[in-house]
Amino acid sequence: MTFKTTSLSRRQALAGVSALAASTMLPAFSQAAEVIDRVQILVGFGVGGGFDQTGRGIQEALQKSGLISNVALENRTGGGGSVAIAHLIETASRQQNTLMVNGTSIVIRSLSREFQQTFRDVTLVGTVTAEIFGILVNPGSPHADIAALTAALKANPRAVRFGGGSPRGGIDHCAAALYLKQAGIDPKAMQYVAYDGGGKAMAGLLGSEVQCIVMPFSEALTQIRGNQLKLLAIMDEKRSADVPTVPTLAEVGVPGATLANVRALFMAPGTSPARVEAFADLLDKLIKTPAWEEVRARNGWNMFFKRGQPAQDFFVQHEKDIRAMLIELGFIQA
């Protein structure tokens, strides 16, 4: 932590020097210190969705914290985010101030479809939040806890109908399959009902169309706190401060079933490492501001900040995990 802060202040000092020298010696200094005077946030999804809210949250916090006042946001929709990715790649030379919001979506789409780009074709700045998956049932469910649910599924994998907010082969389906697989049940035997988004999946569960849903539990915090839905377990290594009484899957004898929907920021391919560092510094600084904390708390986001090599390593592992699930389910060939 301390290392990062020092690096930031050094950069700021240099930025001041370079501003003085900029007019005469721009090429010599531009590599040493990067000045960020404006930020363009690119969202590949429509207004109102999760990615859009992440983008708008970053925009709001950057402005309110006084870090950067000139922050514009652009929704360039289409192809599940791929149109924005293609745009970022095609116009890379003009996108030196652009941060694109994406994350798990880019990984899963490049794995499962004829979708050319992967996260390696753009430049990862850092991960921001991670929405951890949880297993939800109705409060009156015969499966009072996760052990009972697992036992029932072991006896008959089709005893419980699963629902989720993504299509088959999407992230919610993968999460459900991961749970079954780690519990020693064949995920292919699972009955999965796809809904158009988490809200509709919750309505399906509340109306008993399905008996269990697997989705990021932060989306259901309202219902969990109001005792309308019951969170049986979360798919993380440790318990969450938001729901401290809920066990992790590992605690109940299902190890290795961890999955989260990660939101991360990307820059154009070919952006200089110094510039990427400068943006990572900015992000690092941003998430420590009260303005960001306010946005985060309001949305119930779970922080998952990683930058540089750790972020890259995480994405490589993330891709590996999802790939394994898609192979298990038969969506892609090994």
Partner: peptide, 10 residues
């Protein structure tokens, strides 16, 4: 229920 039916209501 805390369930939004559209982007706007979300």
């Amino acid at each position: 229920l805390g369930i939004p039916g559209s982007g706007t209501t979300a």
